[in-house]
Each structure stands twice: as C-alpha cells, then as structure tokens.
Design a protein around this nucleic acid. Sequence first.
DNA 1: CTGTTTTATTAACATCGTTAATTTAGCAAA
DNA 2: TTTGCTAAATTAACGATGTTAATAAAACAG
Lengths: 202, 202
Amino acid sequence: MGVIEKRAKHKEEFRREILDSAREIFINDGYDGFSMRKLAEKIDYSPTTIYLYFKNKDDLLFAICEDFFANFFAELNHIRSVSRGPIETLRKAFLYLVEFGLKNPNQYKLIFFTKSVYGTREELVEEESMARNTYFVFKEIVQDCINAGKLREIEVDVIVDTLSIASHGVIAKNLHCPNFSKERSDIVAHTLVDVLLRGLQK
Amino acid sequence: MGVIEKRAKHKEEFRREILDSAREIFINDGYDGFSMRKLAEKIDYSPTTIYLYFKNKDDLLFAICEDFFANFFAELNHIRSVSRGPIETLRKAFLYLVEFGLKNPNQYKLIFFTKSVYGTREELVEEESMARNTYFVFKEIVQDCINAGKLREIEVDVIVDTLSIASHGVIAKNLHCPNFSKERSDIVAHTLVDVLLRGLQK
DNA sequence: CTGTTTTATTAACATCGTTAATTTAGCAAA
DNA sequence: TTTGCTAAATTAACGATGTTAATAAAACAG
C-alpha cells in the first residue's frame, strides 16, 4: 500500500482492520508475544498510530473479547430460538462454548485465562458489556431448565459455574497437552457433557 | 545484611534463597509481574548475579515447578503407602491436587497455565524430571484401580486426562472468578470428584 | 605472596509499552 | 489561492524489561 492512500480510510473501517490484525498476532503469539511494534509493522503504520484508535494494549484485548462475546451472545439467542426444549438448549449452548474452545484454543486462552479482563463477577455485572449480556443469557438458559422441573434443585450459579469449570478444564487440558489429539478431545468433551447433564438432571 | 558477609554463603544455600524469593514474586505478581531486577532488589544483589545461579527467567520457573512436583511426587507415594485400597488412593491423590490448587491458585496457575514448561507429553516422558516421575506415579495409581477391576475399562490416559481436566477447570474457575468463595469452591470441587469417580466406577 | 578460580558488579544492547512534540495532509472559509 | 483549523501520522524519547560482555573484587590453593 502506498503512502498517499493511507488517509483515504474512514475511522471505523481502519479501527476494524487494526483489530483484525491484532487478533491474529494475539492468537498466534499469545499475550506476551504480542507487541505494539509488531502490530504496527503488520499494518504498515507507526506504533504510535495505533494509540489514536485504541487506548493501549489491554484496550485492544478488551475489544477482541467484546467481539467474541457479541458472537457468543448472538449464537446463544439463536440456539434458544430454534431448539425445542430447555435441556436441549442448555446442551447446545454448552457444547457451542466447548467446541469453540477446541477449535480456537489459543483464542479461548486469550479470552478466559490470560487476564481478568472484566474483573470480578460484581464488576462484570455492574458495567454494561457484551460479556455481561452473555453471562445473563447463559444463566437464563439454566434457569429455564430449573423452572421446567428438569434439573435437581441446585443453585443456578453453582450449575453455571460447574459447566464453565468443565469447559475451562477441557481447554486448559488441550492447551497444556499439545499432543492431546483432536478426536480424543472431542470424545472426552462430549463424554464430560453427557455425564454432567445426566448428573444434573432428576 | 552487610556487604562483607555476601561471600560467606555456600552456593547451594544461596541458590535456594534466590529460588524462595523468586517464588514469592512469581506467586504474588504472576509471570509477567516478575522481573529479574525486582528479584535482585529483593535479595539485595545486582540483577546479573542471578545469572550465575540460573540460566534465565524461565530456568527459575522451571526450578520452581520441579520443587512442586518433587513434593507432589513424595505425597503421592505417601498416600499410596497408607491408604487401604486403589480407589481410596485415587480419590486422595486427586483431592490432594485440587486442594493444593484451591489453597495456592496463583502457584497452580504458574505451574500449569502460564507456560508449557515441559513441552509436549512426548517431551515430558523423554527427559528425566520430577514432573515426569509424578505423571508416571499418577498413571500407576489409576492403573491399579483398573487392575483391581474397580473401574470401567477406559483407556488409562483418558481417565488421567479427565481427572486433570476437572482439576484444571476448578482452579481456572477459581482464578477467573475472584468472588467465587472458598467454601463453594470446596463444595463444587468435592461434588465434582464424587460425580467423576462414581461415573468412572463399574 | 602469587596465580587461578569463583563471585559480583557495571555498562551496554535490544526490545517493550507508552507519552510528548512535531510534522503532514485534508478541508473550509476568506 | 491562500489562510487557518483539524485530524492523522510520524519522530524522538522515557522508563522498564531480559540478557550478554567486560571487568573488578574476593576466596582460595600453591
């Protein structure tokens, strides 16, 4: 790209381009491997230019997380609208998260393990964000199962936590044991889901 | 400590002192928060002195991991020698790991989530290390249960993985949700252990 | 006391995130 | 077209990082 055309871009469009390049580096090289200078070189601008569009490195990570949760949020609503019962909804919702993690372990790690992007749960709930919206929908999906009398009467948040524990564990294992094959990851994950849901049902 | 006495120390003793200080910083400030200069200031030596005892930052982390696995290894052997059946051994062994994680989440994170200190499983198995020894003992404990006919006939490594998945998940959850209380962490962890072991038994 | 080895330090290099000061381009009004 | 303003981008720099090279100081063996 020539020097002259640099000015032609609109702000939002360019911001998106930066974000997409940033995500690539973050995913490939991890949080530590990412650097503003590396990103600058990739988009062919000077490092300081990035600061005109993002506050700092963590602001870039935050934007990437919000992107993810926006997609997850939409997917949860879609699943909810097409599936035929609360348990089926829950199973699909949970499997979507795990399968995303298995397909994109580095991104999963980036979002859930690298930094406490959204702070404590209280802080998460206080401030408006796509992560907050997603948390509420997931909780509602579990609550629907309880209301329909399909689950043993366990505190909603405990169930949500148990499921996210399982998901986090699968991906953590996947990340820590690189020669844990794709197929067995899938098998273990599905087995875990079945066991958990059966264990939770009446 | 005065300047003159610095020479009085023996190599091994000093190395141990550095390591203990390093662990404190690693645990309190995380992998990123740790710096050679910070450690140097803490032990009241110049940064480069550390390089006489450790190859680099990651070598310090490696030594800390080996320390942990040495303890874990000894504990597993002890549990094995005092418990009365293979299933009880497995339950205790697994609970020891999870409870260590709940008591020392930052250290657990440091060891299992921060870096791939030991590489792939093949690499882990190839090179002699306390982590390698620990892995083999844990696997043996599971194998003992299978040999005693106490478990459904599932591949040993799958069971080992499933258990470590659960453990990793509990700690990951604990780290990511700071106001996940100690009590509920314990409850969820123990529930998970029971469910898993019951699900695995015939 | 001398020579060698061990231990520690100072200085420096390359890289990082980030800020301040400055230049350049685009555009509207005179 | 020229003037002035604003937005966009850059250069230079600061402080901090991991790490290496060169050097000084202490400990010790002969």
